[in-house]
Amino acid sequence: MSATQKNIDEMIADIKLPQNVIDNLNRELKERKVTKKQMEEIVKRLHSGYDNAKIEAGEAAGVVSAQSIGEPGTQMTMRTFHYAGVAEINVTLGLPRLIEIVDARKNPSTPMMTIFLEKNYSHDRDKARELAWKIEATYINVLGSISTDITEMKVLIDLNKKALTQRNMTSKEIADRIEEELGVSCEIKGDTLVLEPGKPSYRELLQLVKSLHSVILKGIKGIKRVVIRKEDTGEYVLYTEGSVLKEVLAIEGVDATRTRTNNVNEIFEVMGIEAARQALINEATDTLKEQGLNVDVRHIMLVSDIMTVDGDVKPIGRHGISGEKASVLARAAFEVTVNHLLDSGMRGDVDELRGVTENVIVGQPIRLGTGNVKLIARKAK
């Protein structure tokens, strides 16, 4: 090994890069045949970038992140709904959406999915439309009109031939589905379905009509609407009102590598904690950018890391991160002050005054920055 190569290896080792990054770097060098001088410049820049990225010991990273996200938050609008480039699909944006993200809400107020399709589907409108019908929950009121015959005690469904053809469905399929779901006999007479309730009573008849409206004949429960949009790239993308990630990913033709939802908890359940962490970063960044606010991604990364560090998606609030702080005073300073103090008093808890909040409360220097440095006088000999 040449002296220069040895120096380069030592410089790389100093930066403490992960082994996979070093392997990729070496592979790139072999493929591109970089000169030793160029390689030294690369390592030098890497070293410089790494040093610039490091924060000083004792830096109040948490406080800086809180300020960096909180201040732009005051400039965000309160507008809740917005057509996200797609007609008919409402999406919560602005401050309400940011609150939803940091609260790790189990169900967002406007759940939606962006479904990307595989190559043989994404450029064919008919195939994309066919997939949309597979995903969108189809109810009877879309396929025909319901009427009641009180004299005969029967429910009549007049099917729309055009709607059936469009959704690739038959009268028999619908009749079988209704029989399976409601357990009533369903007779096909031309384009009309005739249903009889279990008992010949007016109450049963009304109950049957009510139940009919909730039967899903095709598609996925929870997906209220699917809109197809042709993107600038020329491919068709499906936007849904409602989110059921697991079932949608199982459908043939859906590109599972790019399909996403705005429901972080659903991503966590289907894909795991790492995907949920990335989803939190993406959702918060997109929400701020949509409002024209530019926040350094590292502040958002810190928040999402804290929310997911225990392998679960926790809210930043008294039911999550803030409620689990070791310090009694820090918990009391956030919300429900009296309850925290009473409970801690009964248990005989001890506060070690390690954090920022508790030290501010008792009026002593915080353990950050200059407050993190202690001078000890050496004994004179």
Rank of each mutant, 00 (worst) to 15 (best):
S2P: 07
Q5E: 14
I12K: 11
N20D: 06
I22A: 01
I22T: 04
R27L: 12
E28I: 14
K36A: 06
Q38K: 07
E40V: 08
L46F: 04
H47Y: 03
D51F: 01
D51V: 02
V64S: 03
Q67V: 11
S68Q: 12
E71H: 06
P72A: 12
T77K: 15
V86P: 03
A87N: 01
L95C: 09
L98A: 15
I101M: 00
V102P: 02
N107T: 07
P108H: 07
F116I: 00
H123S: 12
H123K: 13
D124F: 11
R125F: 04
D126N: 15
A128E: 14
R129D: 12
E130T: 12
L131D: 05
A132V: 04
A132Q: 09
K134W: 11
G144W: 03
T148R: 15
I150S: 05
T151S: 15
E152M: 14
M153A: 14
V155T: 09
K161A: 14
N168G: 09
A175N: 08
D176Q: 13
I178D: 06
S185D: 06
E187K: 12
I188S: 00
K189A: 07
P197T: 09
G198N: 06
K199T: 05
P200E: 12
L206C: 01
L212A: 06
S214H: 10
V215T: 04
G219Q: 07
I223T: 04
E231P: 00
D232M: 06
D232R: 07
T240D: 00
L245Q: 06
K246F: 03
E247Q: 07
E247V: 02
L249M: 12
A250M: 02
A250S: 08
T259K: 14
N262R: 07
E274A: 12
A275Y: 14
A275I: 09
A284P: 03
E290A: 10
Q291R: 04
V303S: 12
M307L: 08
V309S: 11
V309Y: 13
D310I: 01
K314T: 02
H319F: 10
E324Q: 09
A326V: 03
L329Y: 10
A330R: 09
R331E: 01
A332L: 09
F334P: 02
T337I: 08
T337Q: 15
T337K: 13
V338G: 03
L342Y: 05
G345H: 08
M346S: 04
G348R: 14
G355K: 01
G355P: 00
G355D: 05
E358G: 01
E358A: 02
P365G: 05
L368M: 15
L375E: 14
R378G: 06
